[in-house]
Measured scan of single mutants.
Amino acid sequence: MQRVNMIMAESPGLITICLLGYLLSAECTVFLDHENANKILNRPKRYNSGKLEEFVQGNLERECMEEKCSFEEAREVFENTERTTEFWKQYVDGDQCESNPCLNGGSCKDDINSYECWCPFGFEGKNCELDVTCNIKNGRCEQFCKNSADNKVVCSCTEGYRLAENQKSCEPAVPFPCGRVSVSQTSKLTRAETVFPDVDYVNSTEAETILDNITQSTQSFNDFTRVVGGEDAKPGQFPWQVVLNGKVDAFCGGSIVNEKWIVTAAHCVETGVKITVVAGEHNIEETEHTEQKRNVIRIIPHHNYNAAINKYNHDIALLELDEPLVLNSYVTPICIADKEYTNIFLKFGSGYVSGWGRVFHKGRSALVLQYLRVPLVDRATCLRSTKFTIYNNMFCAGFHEGGRDSCQGDSGGPHVTEVEGTSFLTGIISWGEECAMKGKYGIYTKVSRYVNWIKEKTKLT
């Protein structure tokens, strides 16, 4: 034993070699072989497995989906700052455009905790909710729209109204504003409101030439003092309507412009014939205590009207009353817009006519005020429907199939267009061939041609 100890002390290297040989010859039971080890760690190889990531292109799944990435790591994937920024906006807080917040056709661009709407022409605001041009839906104005110097929408209202708090709607500024039905039992019968379409306001006024200088022999019209197929109006439903009495009662109609003036057809009036105007009328054979009678003290036909040349060209006249009318729910003026808007309103496509005229061709006159909704007829169809001249200051309205029309005794009465609950004068009943005849239409004086003249002559002093 002493000898062994001496050998170990003198030859430590020998001992180490012996131990190493023993270990190498022993069977290893701690580690699995290569094949079995792979069965336990069965993990798919990654895209760049075996390579240094710093030297390969980034992978979106590896960089940002398996674990949260930084902007720089995302930049490695896209290799483009702009594309990385677009991805980053949604990656950080989701897609803010998912709810489609942009209105009126706006395009949404996502941002971090926010979004941006790219608005089409005519709109602005956070969600493109603000109209900035009158060309689109009248700028959301209830009545009139004008573009300011910086191309912003400025709404306005006709006389007797003021802008509401929203700067879009119009509200009454006087007790009985024009064009409004205020009798409670008839307010439910107000005709369907007309909503502004998209309009090209630059070209809204037709490029028409008034044929002022045409000389033409007097034409022989049949029954051209021209509501057939209409309905009984309720008291106060058309408070701007008046009836004219002269040699015979209810020979023509008219509309209240203001307390002192009536507008009617020029062919209705004769110099030297006494005319009485009755406002607030409903049943011409009954006294309903809503009527107001006034005498006409002055007749002003349009300066281009000449019955000797043509009885229905420039067929418009103004009547001055001896005493002002007292405005109330049964006696209310009709609204008159400017030339541009009167023309736009007419193009809405349908209007209402009213009167006490004959209820059928050569038949009896109506006792109760009649009204009828009539569609506008395109000019080409209008011209083809008659052998008589249709001037540019006239328009056609009615039904091709016949059966409904204005008729004798309705002449001078109103053709009105309702705009968001307020009625505007767009025409004056003038003439036609018979009444409600198939293929024939009622012919009306186009008020847009005469609004400046009306307003100039009827100013209240």
Results as ranks from 00 to 15, higher is better:
T186V: 09
A317I: 03
S220M: 06
D410S: 08
K137V: 12
E171F: 10
R62T: 13
C268K: 01
N213G: 11
G94T: 12
P324G: 04
Q167H: 11
R75E: 08
G432I: 04
A317H: 00
N104S: 05
Q96H: 15
G349E: 04
I284S: 08
R162H: 10
G58A: 11
V248A: 04
C141I: 00
T190Q: 13
S220H: 07
Y305F: 08
V359Q: 13
K362E: 10
N258E: 01
K455E: 05
S107Y: 07
V331K: 00
V447A: 10
T381R: 12
I316E: 00
V278E: 03
G412D: 03
L19V: 10
A149V: 11
N127Y: 12
Q90T: 06
D200C: 04
V331R: 00
N245Q: 05
D223K: 08
C407P: 05
E420F: 15
P12E: 06
E72M: 12
K457Y: 13
G246L: 03
N147E: 11
A164C: 04
Q370E: 05
G442Q: 14
C145I: 00
L367P: 15
G253M: 12
T194M: 12
F55L: 15
I336M: 07
I390N: 14
R449K: 07
V263S: 02
N151V: 08
Q370F: 02
S70E: 15
L20T: 02
T417R: 01
V243T: 09
L60Y: 07
F238R: 04
T85R: 07
C145R: 01
S411I: 09
R75W: 04
Q57W: 05
F388A: 04
N59L: 05
S169E: 08
F399M: 08
A207C: 05
G421V: 03
E401H: 14
G357D: 10
N310Y: 04
F31A: 09
D378R: 07
W356A: 04
Q96A: 14
N42F: 06
D410R: 09
N166I: 01
E340M: 09
T264Q: 01
S49F: 07
V174T: 09
D232L: 08
S220D: 12
R191V: 11
R358E: 12
E53F: 06
V195E: 13
G236M: 05
E116K: 15
E286D: 11
F55C: 05
K362Y: 07
D131Q: 08
K45R: 13
G253K: 07
E340K: 07
N100L: 10
I15W: 07
G246H: 05
K146S: 06
I429W: 12
S217K: 06
F144D: 00
A307E: 07
H302G: 02
S329T: 07
Y391W: 10
S448R: 02
I299H: 08
F123R: 10
I15R: 05
E320Q: 06
T133Q: 14
T287C: 07
R384D: 12
R298N: 12
S169V: 07
S70N: 14
F123E: 03
R191W: 08
I316C: 01
Y371W: 14
C28P: 04
E323W: 05
T458A: 06
D95I: 09
P177W: 01
I15D: 02
E193V: 14
C145V: 01
K459C: 14
H267F: 01
L163A: 03
Q370R: 12
Q216N: 08
G398F: 03
E61W: 06
S411K: 12
C108T: 00
R384F: 05
K51P: 15
C69M: 04
G402H: 05
N328Y: 00
K440E: 15
